[in-house]
Simulated scan of single mutants.
Amino acid sequence: MLRLGAVVMRVSAIDRARAFWSAALALEGAPHQPAFLLPGDAAPGTRLHLDEEDRMHLDLWADDEADQRVQVERLVSLGARRVEWDYPEGADFVVLADPDGNLFCVIA
């Protein structure tokens, strides 16, 4: 069986990206690996691997539409920005960019 073990994301400054994504997703830095962010309390889950070469986008799932609105505003307050997007009718996602311009979606 396969599982998602890591997401690799290209960033221009690992320290800045680590600060944003650790606050956004409540992740902790891996000992002796500043580019790896892990779920807290040794909980199982996907690792976020920050990389200055590769590029990726994330889909972040909210509990419902109300939670989606709250999460979008929280992420914007942390430094994300809303992205102009041609949304299809009935879209259940909001496209944002992190401080490095990496696109990600918050999905209800």
Rank of each mutant, 00 (worst) to 15 (best):
V11R: 08
D54G: 11
I14L: 14
A108V: 04
D54A: 14
L75V: 01
G5H: 11
V95M: 08
R10D: 05
V95Y: 02
V106Y: 00
D59L: 04
A6F: 14
G101T: 07
D59M: 03
P88E: 10
V7M: 14
A17H: 04
G5F: 10
V8G: 11
V94W: 00
S77I: 00
R18S: 15
L103D: 07
M9Y: 05
E52K: 13
G101I: 07
L25F: 07
S77Y: 00
D15V: 09
D63S: 10
A97Q: 08
A35W: 15
V8C: 12
A19T: 11
G5E: 14
G101R: 10
I107N: 08
V94K: 01
V11F: 05
L96Y: 00
R16F: 05
A17N: 03
T46Y: 01
S12C: 09
R69Q: 11
G29V: 13
D92R: 12
V70S: 03
Q33A: 15
P88M: 07
Q33V: 13
A97E: 14
S12Y: 10
M1G: 13
V7R: 05
E65W: 02
R16C: 04
D59T: 07
P31A: 15
D67V: 02
D63K: 10
D15R: 13
E28D: 15
C105V: 04
L4I: 14
V106W: 01
A6W: 12
L58K: 03
Q33K: 14
L75R: 00
L78Y: 00
